[in-house]
């Protein structure tokens, strides 16, 4: 059964069509990136999967349930570009927030927070406040929080977009390790071609006005990916492939009507 199933989804905001006729299925354990220029609706699509935005027509389902039910059942965790940590909560309490809302008892929460801190390698920082952490560390807390309740699906909206290149590459490695350890499915929105190719099992290329899927590219790079993956000739071939797909979408947009 697919983790995510999107059937003929269209989303209009007033006069603009943000998404048109989107069909997409994502299988368990996949790492799927949505890539495209600004205005192609990739963040909107992510929010429709998360039931944070309702489609104008069509439907999204998660784990075989309507997106709304999946949200209520807490089937997914979400990470934004900003870490969106609650300033008044310590690292441990930020990670525990979804567990509190899910009415976990204190002992279970404490154990789970400890486990998540180990996963994102932030043990020792549990009683720090967000302002005491660097941007990269904040984002790791945000990932730990999204995964704390073991959701089947992790939605990520340009999670490393605000970080510097070095931190970004380190967190990419980190994310792949977490993805393998947790066994969850990831939908990842990004602007970066290299990041999409490096992380993904599949790259969904989108184009704007109206937002639609223009190409889906399977990435057959060896798993697990390592630092040397970025130097693999196959990596560059895929990067080129995605870049050309993006430009094709762009040219279509510019073609005279």
């Amino acid at each position: 059964m697919s983790v995510v199933q999107i059937k003929d989804v269209t989303k209009r905001f007033d006069e603009t069509t943000a998404l048109q006729g989107i069909d997409l299925e994502i299988e368990p354990g996949e790492f799927v990136s949505l890539i495209g220029p600004s205005g192609c609706g990739k963040s909107t699509l992510l929010r429709i999967i998360g039931d944070l935005i309702q489609p104008t027509s069509g439907a999204a389902s998660v784990n075989g349930k309507p997106a709304r039910q999946a949200r209520i059942d807490r089937d997914y965790g979400i990470v934004f570009q900003d870490a969106v940590l609650y300033d008044w909560r310590t690292v441990a309490k930020n990670i525990a927030l979804p567990l509190e809302l899910a009415r976990w008892d204190r002992r279970r929460r404490t154990d789970k927070v400890k486990e998540m801190l180990e996963l994102v390698e932030l043990t020792g920082f549990e009683s720090h406040y967000p302002w005491q952490l660097s941007g990269g560390m904040q984002q790791r807390v945000s990932i730990a929080r999204a995964l704390s309740f073991d959701p089947a699906l992790l939605l990520m909206d340009e999670p490393f977009g605000a970080l510097d290149e070095m931190t970004r590459e380190r967190l990419n490695m980190e994310l792949l390790r977490i993805w393998e350890a947790s066994g969850s499915t990831v939908v990842f929105v990004t602007h970066s071609i290299a990041e999409a190719v490096f992380l993904s099992t599949r790259v969904v290329v989108m184009s704007p006005r109206p937002g639609r899927i223009s190409n889906v590219i399977s990435i057959d790079l060896q798993q697990p990916r390592t630092a040397t993956t970025r130097e693999d000739p196959r990596f560059f071939e895929h990067v080129t492939e995605v870049r050309e797909a993006l430009h094709l979408g762009h040219d279509l947009e510019r073609a005279p009507v």
């Binding site: 934004f80 900003d82 300033d87």
Partner: peptide, 29 residues
């Protein structure tokens, strides 16, 4: 309140009372 913070609470299926208690009031302090 940061709109993302509200989206996050919605993603946890948190109710209005929870959002007040855990996000709006601390933000307002």
């Amino acid at each position: 309140v940061n709109p993302r913070a509200l989206e996050l609470m919605h993603s946890y299926a948190a109710g209005e009372a929870e959002i007040f208690r855990r996000v709006r009031i601390p933000t307002a302090l």
